[in-house]
């Protein structure tokens, strides 16, 4: 059983997840280096699928490489680049290599990437992909063709707790849960009040759904500006950016801010872990999760 599933389903431990750096030219040596850095600290790490619509080594091959070197992957599949056939073969391929954590998401639009002239696929959407994964875990492809034995999937998804239509996001989480998602990694959120309302609402309608909010380590107000202006779906309040901008030491203040947000998130109902994304690329990633109570695994 995957560590992620074991911890989320059979313990009350807080889980920590991170993002595996996209693989381009550095080969297996690069993968090994990143595995060595992340494995002691994280329960499972996302193998992304052409994040922000930029081409990289594929989700499946990255997940296999991570697993080979001893790091548990959460394999993401986005709906932008592949039709329903290819999405199912991604999942079967993952299963062939013993990868069970599968997270299904819509994906950024092609216009977010460096090849905006690409055809966007979106043959199915994330909720449909989740339901298809559940069907496969139940022993059939979408067509009804049998898979024997059925693959063992631990199905996850992503949700944005703080984007319009605000009042609908809880229902959308519920829809994904009903379709088969057991855990949700949440989009980065700088509105603790919105995150709180979302988590409380989800805990009421879907108490079994495990929530994993995301936090982004940044160094400066400039990075927050970037996130606010360039990543659709993430709003950073002006007062939050000003707090970092006006501090004597922006690095420290940005760190403190993120730590406060993360501590608040951990106090919310339904929250079972944290996902950390790193824009700082210094040693604060480990410091951050240590400050949140994480000890290295032995």
């Amino acid at each position: 059983m995957s560590v992620l599933r074991e911890k989320l389903e059979n313990t009350n431990d807080v889980v920590f997840t991170a993002e595996f750096p996209s693989v381009d030219g550095a080969g297996m040596a690069g993968v090994e280096k990143n595995v060595a850095r992340l494995a002691p600290w994280f329960d499972a790490v996302n193998a992304t699928d052409n994040p922000a619509a930029h081409a990289h080594a594929s989700n499946t091959t990255t997940a296999i490489a991570m697993k080979m070197h001893g790091l548990e992957p959460i394999m993401q599949i986005v709906c932008r680049d592949k039709n329903r056939l290819a999405i199912q073969s991604d999942m079967m391929g993952a299963s062939l290599h013993g990868i069970t954590n599968i997270s299904l998401l819509t994906g950024d639009d092609v216009t977010a990437g460096d090849e905006p002239e690409s055809r966007r696929v979106f043959d199915i959407d994330s909720a449909q992909a989740i339901n298809i994964a559940r069907g496969m875990a139940g022993g059939t492809y979408l067509s009804g063709r049998a898979i024997k034995p059925a693959p063992d999937f631990y199905i996850g998804a992503v949700e944005n707790a703080a984007a319009p239509p605000f009042n609908y996001r809880i229902q959308r989480a519920l829809k994904k849960h009903r379709a088969g998602a057991k855990f949700l990694q949440l989009q980065i959120c700088y509105h603790p009040d919105r995150l709180e309302a979302f988590c409380k609402g989800v805990a009421e309608v879907a108490p079994d759904l495990k929530l994993i909010p995301t936090f982004l380590l940044v160094k400066s107000a400039k990075s927050l500006d970037y996130v606010h202006n360039k990543i659709p779906g993430i709003d950073v309040p002006a007062a939050t950016i000003a707090r970092v901008r006006n501090a004597n030491n922006q690095r420290d203040e940005a760190y403190k801010l993120t730590l406060e947000l993360a501590r608040h998130a951990l106090s919310l109902p339904g929250v079972r872990g944290l996902h950390v994304t790193d824009f700082r690329h210094d040693d604060s990633l480990v410091e951050f999760i240590s400050d949140l109570g994480r000890r290295p695994r032995n």
Binding site: D109, Q128, E159, N160, A163, P164, R172, K175, P232, G233
Partner: peptide, 8 residues
């Protein structure tokens, strides 16, 4: 099946 996460 509902909005993506990128709604502004």
């Amino acid at each position: 099946n509902g909005p993506c996460g990128g709604v502004r």
